[in-house]
Amino acid sequence: MKQVTPQEVEMLLTNKQPANIIDVREVDEVKTGKIPNAIHIPLGLLEFRMHELDKSKEYIMVCRSGGRSSMAFKLLENHGYKVINMSGGMLEWKGPVE
């Protein structure tokens, strides 16, 4: 499984590099804050909304601690998407939130 640290994701955003981030947490969790410009698709809906994603792009999967984003990673990878899991999830995120 390809992984990236929260610090590496923050560096991408700081350097204004393109980052396609998908937050798979539940609605009430996202209300506490999410990474700026992250797309919110709860894990339970990902299978039904993956058609909205572009297979030519690479997506960084994010959840609270890394477990659900790992499941999302496997689901999308099995359907031919390019994905990276953010290890540690939002518990390790020290960057800005919206």
Rank of each mutant, 00 (worst) to 15 (best):
M1Y: 03
Q3M: 12
V4L: 11
V4D: 06
P6V: 04
P6D: 00
E8Q: 15
E8W: 05
E8F: 07
V9L: 04
E10A: 15
E10V: 08
E10S: 10
E10L: 13
M11S: 09
M11I: 07
M11G: 01
L13I: 14
L13Q: 09
T14H: 14
N15Q: 13
K16P: 11
Q17C: 02
P18G: 01
P18Y: 00
P18V: 03
P18A: 00
A19Q: 03
A19C: 08
N20Y: 09
N20R: 02
I21V: 14
I22E: 00
V24C: 04
R25W: 02
E26G: 00
V27C: 05
V27F: 15
V27K: 14
E29T: 01
E29M: 03
V30Y: 01
K31S: 15
K31C: 07
T32P: 14
T32M: 07
G33V: 11
G33F: 02
G33Y: 01
K34G: 10
P36C: 01
A38R: 04
A38V: 08
I39M: 13
I39Q: 09
I39D: 03
I39G: 00
H40K: 01
H40V: 14
H40G: 15
I41L: 06
I41Y: 13
G44A: 07
L46D: 07
L46W: 11
E47F: 00
R49L: 15
M50E: 09
M50R: 09
H51M: 02
H51R: 09
H51I: 05
H51P: 15
E52I: 08
L53I: 10
K55N: 03
K55H: 05
S56A: 14
E58S: 09
Y59L: 09
Y59R: 03
I60M: 07
V62G: 13
V62C: 10
C63R: 04
R64W: 10
R64H: 12
R64S: 08
S65Q: 07
S65G: 10
G67H: 04
R68H: 06
R68D: 03
S69R: 00
S69Y: 13
M71A: 11
M71R: 15
A72K: 14
A72Y: 13
A72N: 09
F73A: 04
K74E: 00
L75G: 10
L75E: 04
L76N: 05
E77F: 10
N78Y: 00
N78R: 12
N78V: 10
N78F: 01
N78K: 12
H79Y: 15
G80Q: 12
Y81C: 04
Y81P: 02
I84G: 01
M86R: 00
M86F: 13
G88E: 04
G89D: 04
M90I: 13
E92A: 15
W93I: 12
K94L: 09
K94Q: 15
K94R: 12
G95S: 06
G95E: 05
G95M: 04
G95W: 09
P96W: 00
P96C: 04
P96D: 12
V97I: 11
